[in-house]
Each structure stands twice: as C-alpha cells, then as structure tokens.
Simulated assay, not measured.
Amino acid sequence: MPAPISRRFDPGNYWEGVSPDQDVDPNNVVRYCLKQHHLCLRERLRSKQYMPHTLVVFVDGSYQYNEHHGQRIGGYGCYFGPSSRYNVSECLPSNRPQTSNRAELHASIGALQTIRDCIPESSQPEDVVVITDSRYVYRGITEWIFAWRANGWMRRGRRRVENRDLFEKLDALVVEFGQCGVSVRFWRVPRARNTKADELAREASSAP
C-alpha cells in the first residue's frame, strides 16, 4: 500500500530546484530559532531566513551495554536545537522490553509528545518534520502500518507485528496532530547526519 504524501517529507516540495532524488543534508536546511527554542526549515536552501510555522526535530534511539547496570539499556534522544529547553534524553521504561527498535520508536513518540505538551499553544507549528535514521520507524509509520491495520496487525505468514503498542501510540499522535491542522512528516537520513540526537540517546542509555 503506497504511503500517504502527508507522512513522508520530500525536500522537493519545500525548496525550488530540488529534485525528488537529490541528496539534501538536513543540517544545511534548518536554522535554530532563539525565540521559539527549536529548529525551523529555511525559506531557501542557502537562506538565513526561516519558516516560523515549521518545526524540525532530530530523533534517535540507543540500545547499548550499561556498565552501571550490568546489562543493555535502551534510551532515546530528541534534538530540537542547541541547548533547547525541549531537548529530550530519556531511558526506556524499565518495566517494558528493551530493544533498539523500541528505542527508535520511543524517540519519535517522545518528540511529538514534547511538541504537544511543552510548546505553548501560541507557538505550536503548522508543519512538523521528524528526522530519523531508522528505516524501521520511517517505513513502519509511513507505509507498513496501513497494511498492518488492514490485516489485523498481522504480517505475512500470519506473524504478529512486533511493537504494535508503540506503533499505535505513534500513529495516534500523528492523527491527533492532523486533526488540529498540523501535518507531521518523517524524513529518513543517514546516521552520520543525525549525530546530535544520537548523542542524547547514548547519554540516556549509558547513565548511572
């Protein structure tokens, strides 16, 4: 089932002269807004001006050995900008499964929850871009989830969809934003372009 346009971020829809298959580094097309305490998209690729109605957040998950706890711990990070009051670095709930994929999902969920619950209503964006390096999250929320729901949350071979609880939570948030007139789109980028969120995620999963 094809993914709805509204869930996939296409740089070509925002900036003139950008082709659908052009390699665009997200770090070169965002600007930190001091007044709003988060990243926004630039008006043009090399412009100093930004679009105040947009909000960009980098997200990442981590699942690594924690020497303080003697076991692998999951954590996630949400990067809204340098020293932003909204940046998130949290461990996964200790009473729930700990995996890399769940950490990645928690990162996207945490970002949207932060936007909904912490940013003042007067500063709420019209367009949200969630930047992730996770193929699993990106394709899951923009493509696979529609087939999963239609098939009763079963995959091929009648296998249950893993992490259904988190995909349902993330999907509900995207729908909730849409009902408020806010579009949420996901942009998948290489891991090397998602270093700030990765740092926040690793800090969480390695904390005492």
Rank of each mutant, 00 (worst) to 15 (best):
P2A: 02
A3T: 05
I5N: 05
R7T: 09
R8P: 00
D10R: 02
N13Y: 07
Y14I: 05
V18C: 04
D21N: 14
D21E: 14
Q22K: 13
P26I: 07
N27P: 01
N28T: 14
R31E: 12
L34W: 07
L34V: 11
H38P: 02
R42M: 02
R42E: 01
S47T: 06
S47H: 07
P52F: 08
H53K: 14
V57P: 03
V59P: 06
V59I: 15
G61P: 00
S62Y: 02
Y63I: 00
E67Q: 12
E67V: 11
H69S: 08
I73P: 00
Y76D: 05
Y76K: 05
S89R: 02
E90F: 06
Q98L: 02
E104D: 14
L105N: 01
S108V: 15
I109C: 06
A111I: 10
S123Y: 04
S123A: 13
E126A: 13
V128F: 06
V129T: 12
I131G: 01
R135V: 14
R139K: 14
G140F: 01
I145D: 03
R149Q: 15
N151S: 15
W153H: 07
M154W: 06
M154F: 08
M154G: 04
R156D: 14
G157N: 12
R158Q: 12
E162S: 11
N163R: 06
D165R: 04
E168D: 10
L170W: 03
V174E: 01
S183Q: 12
V184Y: 03
R185D: 01
W187H: 10
R188E: 14
P190M: 11
N194Q: 13
R202D: 13
A204I: 05
A204Q: 06
A204T: 05
S205L: 03
S206Q: 15
